[in-house]
Design a protein around this nucleic acid. Structure first.
Lengths: 337, 337
DNA sequence: ATGAAAGCGCTAACAG
DNA sequence: CTGTTAGCGCTTTCAT
């Protein structure tokens, strides 16, 4: 199973290794005749350049590593589409990894990329502490997706989670809700900002005494847990803002298990507008953020550092928008006050 | 951003490069004193072995590449969990890739791994022609997940799709259905076997004149398309078997759009038992296949070839099981005949 | 137990 | 335009 090397190709085409290298990399300064000979030899032998050797010598991998905090969250899969498209348009390949939202495993995943010496690193929704992220950014350009940071060595491209959460609360308030509760996203990326936005909006609307945050996570299970604790109280909320769509589905399950109906008894907001929210059977009101744009921006940031030599940080904040579907409606008349 | 090398560590610890290499790889034959010195130097310098160089010299990468046909299909995300666990338990790392169910892009994705010289390759749900797969298997051990093949150079671990489809038809027949239609999975992995199973079961049950297969895909959209064509007919089926859960959701959408209800008017079966099927709001009857087991088996196959030197192919077929939920019920009395 | 030396397969000046 | 010469950072005999 030993693969042919550039040397084999050179010998077979009766030229030097350098010439083969030039042909492989598409140099224009090669006689057509020799180029053909080399190409034929490559074809005949089934030669495939050894990326290890190539990267070692060239001191660059033209590969960017993408660490997905959660492979199960459709939101990230959709962001990857954008990243992939943008990267390959610029001649870079991407490699994926995941840490399952577990700090230690995410650290390992990142380390794998650093050892590989990828030219850049995208951390999508990482739960890692800032210190670890900064450390990584010392050896390789890093951009954080769906999470912000003040660290001067990392770029961030995220949706304005605070504004999005405010949009959600405002929407519910517009429908007439007052007892609006929230299920947070635990240590998930952007979770804190979403809760902040919730608190801020509630306060701004004079509803501070109704502020109620149950602890959850960016998972179905987390949403379910949070909702359970909310439902145990004697004064039920009339509306719930979930940390993300996945969590919203957990909330939805908990609420229906209780024999309550959505949106008649309780209104529900998700966040992310993943395909789940659009499923007819769920038809979840949610907050949209453009994943294609996020992916594109992430690559742009990386390339500015890798090829443009930028050193100062970029902080991109995309504007979220409300998507009202069928899980939100006015509260029951008796609850309207 | 230049990283320290093994040479820097050696100098700092006042030992030879070889010694550092031994320490890094945890050799037992190193004096405790020197080991400590080396370890300290590594720590101080923040040394991280260069995987490119290491793999080039060692002629192995200890990483296995996993090509996911579709990052959006939750089924594969769940298989990856199993693969990841099994791989790291054996000291291997995994790297992910995706080709978006597009032949050309999948080929590219695989090529990226071959250039990287990963020690093994797992193709999960690939839509690639057998020829391309065989070609890849010539330079690196390959195992196909969720797809079978007679090629002598590749291993396969899949669910028995044929049996699973028969299970689905049998279940519907047991409920009293006769006009059972199917929406296929296009070029998706295992799609053909599922349709075969459907046809076979229908025939076995004496329902061959009711056989009807609409063309779809392993996506929500594909299921939607297939269902639309089914619904255009004047003699509606009383039950539908979708190619997978994702497609089932598309079918569900199409059916409800038509003003029909599930399961009262039409029963629906999915396939895969992804978390989507378990969502209370969907509660899809489906066929379960154990992803953890699939992942584990895939790694086992690979290691047998990589480390055990096995040459003959392995063909693992896992037994599927029926999961009856709320989208299947007896047909209306007037349709029962 | 440790070090010296020879590559792994490729790129990158530098000559010519 | 093409070939020669050094490495890239690490592992691996082979001595000592």
């Amino acid at each position: 199973v030993s693969q042919p090397t550039i040397h084999d190709v050179a010998r077979s085409a009766k030229v030097s290794k350098s010439l083969v290298s030039l042909v492989v990399r598409g140099s224009p300064n090669v006689t057509e005749g020799k180029r053909q000979r080399v190409l034929r030899a490559i074809e005949d032998l089934g030669y495939r350049p050894n990326l290890m050797a190539r990267s070692l010598a060239a001191r660059r991998t033209t590969t960017i590593g993408v660490m997905l905090s959660d492979l199960h969250n459709p939101f990230f899969a959709e962001v990857v589409d954008g990243i992939d498209a943008a990267a390959s348009a610029s001649g870079y390949g991407i490699l994926l990894n995941t840490g399952n939202r577990v700090v230690a495993r995410e650290a390992q995943a990142i380390d794998a990329f650093l050892q590989l010496r990828t030219d850049g690193l995208i951390l999508a929704g990482t739960v890692l502490p800032t210190a670890s992220i900064v450390e990584a950014s010392l050896s390789c350009p890093v951009v954080l997706v769906s999470r912000t940071s003040r660290a001067p060595t990392v770029d961030t491209v995220a949706n304005d989670d605070r504004a999005g959460a405010e949009l959600a609360v405002q929407h519910l308030h517009d429908l007439g809700h007052h007892r609006i509760a929230a299920v947070d996203g635990g240590n998930g990326a952007g979770a804190k900002a979403r809760v902040d936005g919730y608190r801020h909006a509630m306060t701004r609307l004079g509803l501070e005494k109704h502020i109620r945050v149950a602890s959850g996570a960016f998972t179905e299970e987390g949403g379910y847990r949070g909702a359970r604790s909310l439902l145990r109280s004697n004064h039920l909320p009339t509306a719930v803002c979930a940390a993300n769509d996945l969590a919203a589905i957990g909330v939805l399950n908990a609420i229906e298990e209780e024999g309550l109906r959505i949106p008649q008894d309780i209104s529900l907001m998700g966040y992310d507008n993943t395909f789940l929210a659009g499923l007819r059977h769920i038809s979840l009101s949610t907050i949209n953020q453009s994943r294609a744009e996020i992916g594109q921006m992430a690559i742009t940031c990386l390339l500015e550092r890798i090829e443009g030599g930028r050193r100062d940080p970029r902080r991109l904040l995309l504007t979220p928008e409300l998507v009202a579907r069928d899980t939100t409606a006015p509260p029951r008349p008796e609850d309207a006050l």
